[in-house]
């Protein structure tokens, strides 16, 4: 019996199904939990509309205010490095796209692996910088909870193991690939119940912010 191979097959089979199920049901449940709370009807005469400004803020909040950026550039730079690096590695790496195709039946062209490789490095450096910042910066130390450390670790492991697996830096290969998949599954299972949910709720938050400001005639 080939144990590393069995482990890999398990991570790609049973474990994957469990993780995806928890992820999908959990995310839907959490979004429902939020939206079901609703909003009271606002009776104040509006000065501007809500929908458009809300949509606009979803985009514009990605650009930091210059004055605030100057005060805390590392948060912004590390944030950009990590998010861009992660997104490119996640959706532009050919084997990942193959997985999407096999699961959902559609695909898109990937990027050459050296570019994806650079993106992964970017994400790793970004995450390490963010970690260092969280340890050193007094404001972040004040507001950091155990959940922030957990979420950092759960995000870091898939990128690290993916990088190690791609470069064949750990033997045997099925073990590191299996660990990569397992770490993604851990991430997916924790996702709905932690602040990883911001991936989805950021659209709600920014929209509400932009809409509530827009109603008062202010671009936020």
């Amino acid at each position: 019996m080939n144990e590393p191979m069995d482990f890999l097959i398990w991570t790609r089979g049973t474990a994957f199904d469990i993780a995806v199920t928890i992820f999908v049901i959990g995310v839907i449940l959490r979004l429902f939990e939020i939206l079901a709370l609703g909003r009271k009807q606002n009776l104040a005469e509006p000065k501007g509309s809500e929908f458009g400004p809300g949509m606009k803020t979803i985009l514009t909040r990605s650009i930091p205010d210059l004055g605030t950026f100057r005060r805390q550039p590392l948060t912004v730079v590390a944030g950009y490095m990590f998010h861009i690096g992660l997104l490119v590695s996640l959706i532009m790496f050919v084997p990942h796209i193959e997985l999407f195709r096999a699961t959902f039946g559609f695909s898109w062209p990937g990027l050459p692996t050296p570019i994806v490789d650079a993106a992964a490095v970017l994400a790793i450096v970004g995450l390490l910088a963010a970690l260092w910042h969280r340890i050193m910066n007094p404001v972040m130390r004040k507001i950091t909870t155990w959940e922030d450390w957990l979420v950092w670790t759960l995000t870091f492991l898939p990128i690290l193991t993916g990088y190690l697996a791609y470069h064949r830096m750990v033997n045997p290969y099925p073990v590191i690939l299996g660990l990569h998949i397992l770490s993604v599954e851990a991430l997916m299972i924790a996702f709905p119940f932690t602040k990883l949910m911001h991936t989805f709720t950021v659209f709600l938050s920014r929209w509400y912010n932009g809409a509530m400001s827009g109603r008062r005639g202010v671009e936020s």
Partner: peptide, 21 residues
């Protein structure tokens, strides 16, 4: 607590940028 409040707390990643404002 309403939907915006729940969305806001769900979204906070403890980045600390609000302190700078």
């Amino acid at each position: 607590i309403d939907a915006p409040v729940a969305a806001f707390f769900s979204s906070c990643v403890s980045c600390g940028m609000c302190a700078e404002a």
